[in-house]
C-alpha cells in the first residue's frame, strides 16, 4: 500500500529523534526516523528491546516519560502537527483520534474501579453521551471484544478477569471513542501463547471493521507476518528496513532483517536450527560509529564502520545498508 498521492497519510512521523538528557551526556534513543501510516493500514514496527519502538509509540501519543524528549522532527496527524501541542490539546487527541493498547493487561486497568466505570468515563470524556447512553455503549464494546456474559461482567473489577480477558477490556477502552489509529505496544507479549493469537485476531478484525489504522509495536515477527500490511524494522533507534510485509519477509535486504527472518521457525522447511544473530544490540551510550549494526553484521566492510547509511529504495523496500549503495551520494 503506497501512500495516497493527494491526501496526507493518517499519521506521519518525520525525522523524529528522541533523546534522554543524563548526567553523562545526552543519549539518543530514537535517531531520525520517519514512518507513515495510511487510513486503515496496519504498520508493524519490529525490533529488539531497546530499539526505540515503544518510545516512538509513546512520542506519538505525547506520553514520553520524563526526562525523555523529542529532540527534533515532526509528528503529523492528518497533515497537522501534533508533536508541539499543549498537554490539554494533546489530551483531546488521545483516546479520540489515537487510542493505545499497552503491553501488560494486568497493570493497564485501575484495580479500584469496575470495568464499566472505566469504560464510561472514557466514553464520556470524548463524546456527548450521558451516563446511561455511555453505559449502553460500554456494553456494546465489551460484547464486541468478545467478553462472555458482558452484561454481568460490566460491574466486575479488573482482578476478576483473566489476562486475556483484561486485554480485551483494554482493547475495548482503546476503541471506546472510535479512534482512527491505535498504537498497540506489544499487546500480546504478556499473554499466554494460546491467547496471543486470539487477541491479535480480535484487534485485527475490530480495526478492519472500523477502518482503524494500527501501529503494531512488537518484537514478534510472527505476529507481524500475520497482521501487518507494512513493516518497519528498527535497530538501535533507527529504521533499517521498511516495506510491504510480504516483501520484507520474503525478500529482506538488510542483513539484520534477514537475520530476524531466519529466526522465525517455519513448518514447511525442515530447518533443524534457527539462525541466530550473534551479539546484542548496543547500549545507547555505546552506539558504534557508522552503521549501528556493523559489529554484528556478517557482511560488514570498511564503509559500514565509518559512515552511516541512509534509507534507499530497493525494489519495494527501503533499506539503510551500504551493500546496496554504490556511491556516497546515493541517498534516496
Amino acid at each position: 500500500m503506497a501512500p495516497q498521492n493527494d491526501s496526507p497519510p493518517l499519521l506521519e512521523v518525520r525525522n523524529l529523534s528522541i533523546e534522554f538528557p543524563t548526567r553523562r551526556g545526552t543519549l539518543v534513543a530514537v535517531d531520525d526516523i520517519s514512518l507513515h501510516i495510511d487510513q486503515g493500514e496496519v504498520l508493524g514496527v519490529v525490533g529488539e528491546s531497546g530499539a526505540g519502538k515503544s518510545l516512538t509509540g509513546n512520542a506519538i501519543i505525547g506520553l514520553l516519560e520524563h526526562p525523555g524528549r523529542i529532540a527534533s522532527g515532526e509528528i503529523l496527524l492528518n497533515g497537522k502537527r501534533i508533536d508541539n501541542l499543549s498537554y490539554e490539546q494533546m489530551r483531546r487527541i488521545r483516546g479520540r483520534d489515537i487510542g493505545a493498547v499497552f503491553q501488560d493487561p494486568l497493570t493497564s486497568l485501575n484495580p479500584l474501579y469496575t470495568v464499566s466505570r472505566q469504560l464510561v468515563e472514557t466514553i464520556k470524556v470524548h463524546t456527548d453521551l450521558d451516563t446511561g447512553a455511555a453505559r449502553a455503549r460500554a456494553l456494546e464494546l465489551l460484547e464486541a471484544v468478545g467478553i462472555p456474559a458482558a452484561k454481568e461482567r460490566l460491574s466486575s473489577y479488573p482482578h476478576e478477569f483473566s489476562g486475556g480477558m483484561r486485554q480485551r477490556v483494554v482493547i475495548a477502552l482503546a476503541l471506546a471513542a472510535e479512534p482512527r489509529l491505535i498504537i498497540a505496544d506489544e499487546p500480546t507479549t504478556a499473554l499466554d501463547v494460546s491467547i496471543q493469537a486470539q487477541i491479535i485476531a480480535l484487534l485485527k478484525r475490530l480495526c478492519a471493521e472500523r477502518g482503524t489504522a494500527v501501529m503494531l509495536v512488537t518484537h514478534d515477527m510472527g505476529v507481524i507476518a500475520e497482521t501487518a500490511d507494512r513493516v518497519a524494522v528498527m535497530y538501535a533507534g533507527r529504521v533499517v528496513e521498511t516495506g510491504p510485509v510480504a516483501s520484507v519477509i520474503q525478500n529482506a535486504h538488510h542483513p539484520y532483517t534477514s537475520g530476524l527472518m531466519g529466526s522465525i521457525p517455519h513448518m514447511k522447511h525442515g530447518v533443524n536450527r534457527l539462525t541466530q544473530i550473534d551479539g546484542a544490540m548496543p547500549r545507547l551510550n555505546a552506539i558504534p560509529q557508522g552503521c549501528a549494526f556493523n559489529p554484528r553484521c556478517e557482511k560488514v566492510f570498511d564503509r559500514c564502520r565509518k559512515e552511516r547509511p541512509e534509507l534507499i529504495s530497493i525494489e519495494q523496500n527501503e533499506v539503510a545498508c551500504w551493500l546496496y549503495q554504490s556511491d556516497v551520494g546515493g541517498v534516496s
Binding site: 501519543i61 506520553l63 498537554y87 489530551r91 483531546r92 487527541i93 488521545r94 483516546g95 479520540r96 487510542g99 493505545a100 499497552f102 503491553q103 501488560d104 497493570t107 493497564s108 486497568l109 485501575n110 484495580p111 468515563e121 472514557t122 470524556v125 470524548h126 483494554v170 477502552l173 482503546a174 471506546a176 471513542a177
Partner: peptide, 16 residues
C-alpha cells in the same frame, strides 16, 4: 504505574 499511563492515553483529564 501502567494504569495511570493508560488513563492518560485514554484522554482523561488531568484532574480525573
Amino acid at each position: 504505574t501502567d494504569y495511570i499511563k493508560f488513563a492518560r492515553a485514554r484522554g482523561l483529564s488531568n484532574r480525573a
